[in-house]
Simulated assay, not measured.
Amino acid sequence: MPIHPQIAEILSHIPPADGSRPDPAAMRAADQQRVTPMEDRLPLASVEDTTARAATGDVPIRIYTPVEADSYGVIIYFHGGAFFSGNLDTHDGVARALAKETGYRVVSVDYRRAPEAAYPAGLQDCYGVVRWVAENGESLNWDGTNLAIAGDSSGANFVAAVAAMAHDDGFDRITHQVLFYPSVDLDFDLERYESLRENARGYGLETIGLKPWNSFYIDGGADPADPLVSPVKRSDLTGLPPALILTAEFDPLRDEGELYGQRLRDAGVDATVSRYAGANHGFVQNFSWIPEYFRAFAETAEFLNQLPPEERS
């Protein structure tokens, strides 16, 4: 199907990428101007800004509580933004919708960003918050069972990397990983994926912009050949948590996300890949007001709340 008409209308007003390197301060300021006013945000039982005391130091977090309850599953959310942009506010709507639809308490992580913080600072912050949540579950009313990590785009890169780090450390508390249109291969060779050519121009995120937008992360020491930077390159994916991967039809990153899902399945991991027709990169954050794309949150809820494979009839 073609790009969704409501998305197409908005894209028609966005100039094409020219391959130049973005200005982080300008991009962050522009992102902030698009933040939804507080009075228009989805109401929840509570939303609290606090800090997690991780191994890397204090990390700002925002905790979203959907309803008052005795205990909750927990989702730890890593926002996208090409490793240099995005924050708790830009992805506040995503976190609220996840909490509302899943019934989980959501912990959104304000990790350190490039270029001010070199690799692996942001990744370590994300992993540190996961460990902090598991160690402080009583104060969060965590049910002790369901602990998911989720993220979009570069945040989904952190999801895959954190899942691998936890596995290698013998930390087995992560029960699910949710990746929205993940950036899991920072080698942007056009020969690697058909979607880099098919969706190169005209759909918001453009192939010509991938290298300059990710340059701050790579220039800060993130080697695209390292599986913690490009998780699809990890040789052994066995033992990782069950995964839900949502991709977009008109996304240059579509094929790498779907390959990652296939490689997880080949390694015996319970992995679901769901391609959203007519969607582009960023649709969960930018276009969830379109009913067929808000479905991403319901699909996530179904994934998180289903019985594990061994208990399904």
Rank of each mutant, 00 (worst) to 15 (best):
L246M: 14
T247N: 01
F250P: 10
Y260L: 06
Y260T: 00
F294Y: 13
A267F: 10
E258T: 09
R265W: 03
F250I: 04
V273R: 08
R275Q: 15
F287I: 14
E249F: 13
V269K: 05
S235I: 01
T247Y: 00
F250T: 05
P252L: 07
E258S: 15
A271I: 00
L237I: 09
G282V: 03
L253K: 04
G261F: 03
V273E: 15
R234L: 08
Q262E: 13
S235H: 03
F294P: 00
I245V: 14
L244N: 00
D236K: 06
R234Q: 14
N286G: 12
L237D: 04
Y260R: 02
P242S: 11
P291F: 14
A279H: 11
R265P: 01
L244H: 01
L259D: 03
N286F: 12
S274C: 07
F283Y: 06
L237N: 10
Y260M: 04
L264K: 14
G261T: 01
G239E: 15
W289S: 09
A243H: 09
R254M: 04
R254V: 02
G261A: 05
N280R: 04
G282W: 02
E249P: 13
G261Y: 02
A267Y: 09
L244Q: 03
W289T: 08
W289F: 14
G268C: 08
P291L: 13
R265M: 09
R265T: 09
A277F: 08
L246Q: 14
P291V: 15
S235N: 02
Y260G: 00
G261P: 02
V273H: 06
A243S: 13
G268I: 10
A248E: 02
I290H: 05
A267K: 09
N286V: 09
R275G: 10
I245P: 07
V232I: 13
Y260P: 00
D251G: 06
G261Q: 03
G278W: 00
R275V: 11
D255F: 09
V232Y: 03
E292F: 02
V284M: 11
V232N: 00
A243C: 08
L240R: 06
D270I: 00
G278M: 02
N286C: 12
R275W: 10
P252I: 03
A267L: 10
S274P: 00
Y293M: 08
D255C: 09
T238Y: 07
N286Q: 14
